[in-house]
Write a protein that binds this DNA or RNA. Sequence first.
DNA 1: CTGAAAGCGCTAACAG
DNA 2: CTGTTAGCGCTTTCAG
Lengths: 338, 338
Amino acid sequence: MVKSANNMKEVAQKAGVSVSTVSRVLAGKTYISENTREMVENAAKELNYRPNVMAKGLKLGRSNAIALMIPSIDNLMFPDIVRGVEDVAQSHNFVVTLCNTDEDMNKEKLYMKKLSNMGVDGIVFATMRKNSDYVRSLHEEGFPIVLTSRNYDGKLDAVVINNLLSAYKGVSYLISRGYKNIAIALGDEELPLYQKRLLGYKKALEEANIPYKEELVMREVGTNDSFYPLTKDLLKNHPEVDCFFATNDIRAIIIIRALRDMGLRIPEDIGVMGFDDTQISALVDPPLTTIHQPLYEIGASAAKRLIFQIQHKQEKGNLALPKIEILETELIVRKSTK
Amino acid sequence: MVKSANNMKEVAQKAGVSVSTVSRVLAGKTYISENTREMVENAAKELNYRPNVMAKGLKLGRSNAIALMIPSIDNLMFPDIVRGVEDVAQSHNFVVTLCNTDEDMNKEKLYMKKLSNMGVDGIVFATMRKNSDYVRSLHEEGFPIVLTSRNYDGKLDAVVINNLLSAYKGVSYLISRGYKNIAIALGDEELPLYQKRLLGYKKALEEANIPYKEELVMREVGTNDSFYPLTKDLLKNHPEVDCFFATNDIRAIIIIRALRDMGLRIPEDIGVMGFDDTQISALVDPPLTTIHQPLYEIGASAAKRLIFQIQHKQEKGNLALPKIEILETELIVRKSTK
DNA sequence: CTGAAAGCGCTAACAG
DNA sequence: CTGTTAGCGCTTTCAG
């Protein structure tokens, strides 16, 4: 195999100095005579020297890479989070490895096994679940980890939103607009974020003295698409429903489709509210009234915190105490509610 | 700093054998007595041994990672391509580093500098431009590279679609539906793919004996948003226009918005066709008639080819001759045309 | 200010 | 079948 034939040794030879000198000028931390510095820099440039990432990493005990675990980049929640992560990673001279897990724990474990020992210096998990113990034990070994969006318990760093409050704000708004019989479309209830959104919904109803009815809670069976029949069924049994609070934008879109196929107009006949404010929500018809999550900032903050932990560990030998960062959401009123 | 304290040496000690033996059983290629194999495997399991990616990479001269350069993951063209790349990478035991370049050559060069020497074993570029000479020279050094979507010239591997033919098919369909005055919304004309789509448009017109009119060509100024005023202006000056052929879906959506704001109904009053068939095109109103690009397959094929080249180089010492792979597109008729 | 030497963790001859 | 040894390319003492 043709070797890359481009290393410090060659630069050293060309410049007529030792490898250690080359290392020193390229690191640029210590004083070097102006003369040799120039020689080395020229030699490096002429040979188009590019440092060997692996060698450096092996020696220094770090890779300058972080990983980001997400369910799937196809889910419109994640492109913005990824951008946030990558932008701050880049500005700190880190590179990011993207891992799509499809919510498959085995896939995730495989990735972690491959990456945890020098593959990356830390991991952002947007995939945390109740039983992700392998994540916790990796953290206990002292491996830098930051959670986003999902489960968190105070033991690990996390950057999240206040789901209860956000749902509460949304549903309160609906009530303030005169809606009285609001159904809710829930996601995977194993995830605390959906439990919290349900709680927020309940709280808003309670505060308005609207009785909570279990029958108005739509629970996903399998995929998002299940909300299509669910919506039709619900409305058949409860024609009094005048609004749907969907716990994400895709569900809102599916509900709208079902409603339209029943001959209903949005928002004239019935209202629909989304959650997340992903890229599509402004583009669909009608543009969605929804709760904006600062996705980019979530990614950016998570990466910042992760890199902080990586450096902390590098310098002090251990991780800093975990911190939960809560970012603000915002109600975005568009055209899917009256 | 607390070292990860988990290496072959420890496993070897615990198992009472030498490091090379550990290496051998863990590699699993050569015969080892059943006895020691078991000892080693147990020791490894008990110590939760995870191989050091960097050490292995340095020794073997490969990282088992590939990079993917894209303009931005926010652009809905790319999530599917990324999934395609990652799925095949994963199945070949590679990991993928995602690089958002924002079409910024300096950012891209920085990434390449950082990744080219052992950072990754090869790169998929979805960002190729006329003047991306640094990509070509990296390739000439023998570095595995595959292009997608953009420029290509036969010197580098590429997986693409036939843009001319696809546009031709699309516009021919429009003509067959009775549209006679079709405007076109072009993208960055430095990119051959848009030149080709224009050519396809022209060819379809020509074949139908419809004269090509330069005035019906809308050229982007700055961002996609420029098509909003552009559309209004065009229609003011050319009220005879009965259809817009947009060279991507986002542009189609913006045009639709402009048209609606002028009081026009789609498709009753005027038609709009998109291109790409990204995730949103089925979700917007009206759902877009568009040209489907097999985005996932593009990513998957590119990754396959890249890994092939990496292995070829590994085994034979040089790259295989470049190959251009052309994937099929498909006309998707939805509701934005009559 | 600079060179020699050791070693990060792993694999691959080379012996035996 | 297994141990010893060298070395991947780099950084970092330790001398000088």
